[in-house]
Amino acid sequence: MSLTGKRSGVVFACLFLTPIFLLLITFRVVPGISAVWHSFTAWNGISPPTYVGLANYRQLLQDDVFWTALRNNFLLALAVPVWITVSLVLALLIHQEVPGWRFFRAAFFLPTVLSPVIVGTLFTALLRYDGPVNRALDIVGLGAIARDWLGNPATALPTLMLVILWCIFGHGVIVFLAGLAAIPREIFEAARLDGAAGWVFLRHIVVPSLRHVIEFWAVNLVVWSFTSLFAFVYVMTGGGPGYATMLVEYQLYLQAFESNHMGYACALGSALFLLVFGLIILQIRLMAGKED
């Protein structure tokens, strides 16, 4: 019979969905389960693993490095509202369609296009004690605050945060621009006629209208900060000085591929997964909560 109709729908569905499920199961689900299983073993990656029960998790709870890394991750996550605000404000400004707005939109997006490796290498050079940034500060008379930005434990993490901000704010700008474009002009007009301006305008008109976009972007950023900063740390600080910029993600890499504590690294990975999962659920709940 002809290949249309309900049965063919099922046949083709199987056909079309096979590749993606094959890939996802082989390269995501199976390794995921394997990671959880290995987190209960001691394993160096080459020889067969030995079962150790909850030993890895117990070690995790007592691991100072892990808690420091976790703390650093949370500090970074706290920076997310800043990242969002910067993007939002800049998006609003561009939305005004001032002369050259297309140029600005492109210029802001430029850092996102660059690899974190390149960004990291570049800024490591720029931020050196005798680098251009300190030199520039000197020229404008702020030489007193010049320091070894990435080598000083007090400033290493904030500096990292700023570099990351530089890297991704443009992406947020684009996202918010799209959101703003979707807001009907009338709302802006009405607000202007009512005399609402500045902060009031932002808080009571823009933010509520963009709520979905802001929440989407916030969830995105938080998850991203827990799972995708490897390249920055690898290139810029190696987790140092000491453990000042150690992140859970990076510790996982070190334990797995430098120290060969694969079992322990799997435990770290599982802990990370639970954490991210929990955060996402939390944020979805918060979003749903505001829905009324």
Partner: peptide
Amino acid sequence: MIAPQVIIIP
């Protein structure tokens, strides 16, 4: 939701 770090070793 399965972050890359989790699956990287297996």
